[in-house]
């Protein structure tokens, strides 16, 4: 009887030990975490400054309704259904950015349509329920403070008229 308890316990311990064997070098190792729950991360604070200044003046804002949303989107390609990893950025409930994403521990990429294009966020903090991302555009730095949330995703207007 004792063995019946020992074996599942060991299985649990082992599955924990080897969990990281899966996807350590995956291009999207962070996506599972980002898309957990309903996949939304609220932007709680935004800092902006000029990165050329050694001692920059930082402008801080607290957005009202701004969040990132990560999810799997299924598409039919040559007759097969494939799942694409998607990311969206909403500011004031308006969709600002939408793209396939590559999410790694150090870098989140909202991919562009051509080679060399896209938006890169450098991951500065990778906490369990909080993240800090840095985006650099020319010399202008923007730091996003994100918290895991259950934000409501704006619904798409329906094409159905009901008539």
């Amino acid at each position: 009887m004792k063995r019946l308890f020992v074996l599942p316990f060991l299985a649990l311990v082992l599955s924990g030990c080897f969990k990281e064997f899966n996807g350590i070098n995956d291009e999207n190792e962070l996506f599972a975490k980002l898309s957990r729950g309903n996949g939304t991360w609220e932007v709680t604070k935004v800092e902006k400054w000029n990165a050329l200044d050694a001692d920059p003046v930082i402008t801080t804002t607290t957005p009202d309704s701004s969040f990132f949303y990560f999810y799997l989107r299924s598409k039919i390609v040559f007759g097969s259904v494939i799942d694409l990893k998607y990311g969206e950025y909403y500011d004031n409930n308006n969709l600002i950015e939408e793209a396939t994403v590559s999410a790694q521990k150090e870098r989140i990429v909202f991919e562009g349509n051509t080679v060399g294009s896209g938006t890169v966020y450098t991951v500065e903090k990778n906490g369990l329920t909080s993240l800090i991302w840095l985006h650099m555009e020319s010399d202008q730095a923007t730091r996003y403070y994100l918290e895991k949330c259950n934000c409501e995703i704006p619904s798409n207007p329906s094409n159905e008229t009901g008539g």
Partner: peptide, 16 residues
């Protein structure tokens, strides 16, 4: 991981 460092100490992976 190869970062570019800015004068303000920011470390970035921007594709520039």
């Amino acid at each position: 991981v190869s970062y570019y460092i800015y004068p303000d100490e920011s470390r970035t992976l921007t594709h520039e």
